[in-house]
């Protein structure tokens, strides 16, 4: 695929004797929603760590928008348009919702060696942050301290912060983790909307959500991508069924 926004080649990472990624190859095309599924311990977290720059691969390359970013530090990846959400909520718990998201805006609005003007009165930080919050449905909660909010709301803030950096690629690491069915359904609707504007790499356990949203799916097992393809082909791929889906009988979902 020539218009791949994200291209991963031969990514390998070992932790002692454990192979967490073994020659992972992956392409996320511009505009697609690409999902990565895999059982626990398949190496999804290690993979996303290497994509965001928190973990250095032993070998292999990561290209983003035609640029080799394999050794680029995390903050620089954010600057060129990679945004992520965390599987385990990772927010500024002692700050308000709006302060959280405004910080994400601030990171992309020049340097922060500005010592005098109050940041909370800067419209060009606050307004884009409000817009991102409205987008995820938290427009009326901006002054609540994050610590005092529900888990579901934390998940929404995760996405709002990613959006506030005006990314080209959204890396969503299990955005539905720990959500109830109702909250999950709402999030699926939101992702369906976001899909129209953003290229998304979605790592998710919720099979129903993945098969409903993904354009393509890659299946990760023991650090290797064993299959990539449209949901319909993944669903009937015998290797996938054997390695991962097994008794879940995903084929029955629709």
């Amino acid at each position: 695929m020539t218009d791949a926004l994200l291209r991963v080649d031969g990514l390998t990472k070992r932790f002692g004797g454990v192979i967490a990624s073994e020659g992972v190859a992956l392409e996320v095309a511009n505009g697609e929603l690409h999902a990565i599924i895999g059982p626990n311990g398949a190496g999804k977290t290690t993979l996303i760590g290497q994509l965001t720059g928190e973990i250095a691969p032993d070998s292999g390359r990561v290209h983003f928008a035609g640029q080799d970013i394999t050794t680029l530090p995390t903050y620089r990846r954010s600057a060129i348009g990679m945004a992520r959400s965390f599987q385990i909520t990772s927010l500024f718990l002692d700050m308000t919702v709006l302060d959280n998201v405004a910080l994400a805006v601030q990171a992309h609005s020049g340097h922060s060696f500005r010592f005098w003007t109050p940041a909370r009165s800067e419209t060009r930080l606050r307004e884009p942050a409000r817009a991102a919050l409205a987008r995820v449905g938290l427009g009326d909660r901006e002054n609540v301290v994050v610590r005092d909010m529900s888990h579901g709301e934390h998940r929404q803030i995760e996405i709002a912060m990613a959006l506030a950096t005006r990314p080209r690629l959204l890396l969503l690491d299990e955005p539905m983790a720990g959500m109830g069915p109702e909250e999950s359904a709402r999030l699926v609707n939101l992702l369906r909307e976001l899909k129209k504007e953003y290229t998304i790499l979605l790592i998710e356990h919720d099979m129903e959500a993945v098969f409903a949203l993904a354009d393509r799916i890659s299946v990760l097992v023991y650090g290797r991508v064993i299959a990539t393809g449209a949901p319909a082909t993944i669903r009937v791929n015998p290797e996938v069924i054997q390695a991962y889906l097994g008794e879940q009988q995903v084929a029955g979902h629709g």
């Binding site: 954010s78 990772s90 927010l91 601030q106 922060s112 060696f113 940041a119 800067e122 950096t165």
Partner: peptide
Amino acid sequence: WRLVNSRFGMAIQGARSNDRRMHAIGFPT
């Protein structure tokens, strides 16, 4: 007072609160 309420101060407090997140949203803290 001026410092902690400025952009600089927000970055400092963000780094105290969650440095990993700061890097993820693009701050060289």
